[in-house]
């Protein structure tokens, strides 16, 4: 009895317990997912400040890494878009969906740029095919991208070019729409993004407004444009 108890205790190492929990109870993975979503929103808000509370953002980033590692281990780490689609309150889904996509898109971007093929159409497929092992580094670069000046100038320039290219090739008229909307002062954006955390109604409305202005094209490209919008937003905040 005693020995069994002991053994059980030993084998109940965290990873196993965690992995079992993840498989057995969908609520655990759901909670983990919502924690991840929440953390990503917090991180994104950190990035909107020139000088965020460094301690806080480091701790949040470490939490994100930790969740990712665990998700990578039990194989649940993939593009969050389809996974989260049917669950949880809609407003959070919309917002975090964008955030997660932004993270992945940033990762997918670099190979896309290297290969001479048009960046836009490949993006989605590359995203969904990105292997799990790449995940941590991908999000990491997203996490700290805004802080490292030597890198971000270049990549933002690239992504800006890319956005122009995409928009021109697809829907030239939408460019004005996009920038008319984005031109509004960034504290509006603050309000929108803050609303994402606090209020429920503001958030999705704000983003839908942005989205509809930026992407009049059919549903499939809508998501991508949302991600690109996010980039533009980031650039604007940076500058």
């Amino acid at each position: 009895m005693f020995a069994r108890g002991l053994k059980r205790k030993c084998s109940d190492g965290e990873e196993i317990a965690v992995a079992e929990g993840a498989l057995a109870t969908p609520s655990y993975s759901l909670q983990r997912q919502s924690l991840l979503d929440m953390s990503l929103v917090k991180l994104q808000l950190c990035h909107m400040l020139v000088e965020p509370n460094l301690c806080r953002s480091v701790l949040i980033a470490n939490t994100v890494r930790q969740i990712q590692e665990e998700m990578t281990q039990d194989g649940t780490w993939r593009v969050p878009v389809p996974q989260t689609a049917g669950r949880g309150p809609l407003d959070r889904l919309v917002s975090t969906d964008i955030l997660c996509r932004a993270a992945w898109e940033q990762q997918g971007e670099h190979p896309a740029l290297d290969s001479a093929s048009g960046p836009a159409p490949d993006l989605l497929s590359e995203l969904s095919m990105a292997p799990c092992a790449q995940a941590p580094s991908g999000v990491q670069s997203c996490v700290w991208g805004a802080h490292s000046p030597r890198e971000n100038k270049g990549s933002f320039q690239k992504s800006l070019d890319q956005i122009f290219e995409t928009l021109e090739s697809k829907a030239p008229s939408s460019v004005e729409g996009l920038f008319a909307d984005v031109d509004s002062p960034y504290y509006d954006l603050d309000a929108v993004l803050t609303g994402m955390v606090r209020g429920k109604s503001v958030s999705s409305d704000g983003f839908e407004a942005l989205a509809s202005a930026g992407a009049p094209s059919p549903s499939s490209s809508c998501k991508r444009d949302l991600g690109e919008l996010d980039h533009v937003v980031e650039i604007l905040v940076e500058t």
């Binding site: 460094l54 301690c55 990491q140 670069s141 700290w144 991208g145 802080h147 490292s148």
Partner: peptide
């Protein structure tokens, strides 16, 4: 050297 590797701060 690379801020992406930052995981710890002085409190």
């Amino acid at each position: 050297a690379n801020m992406e590797e930052l995981t710890e701060v002085i409190t």
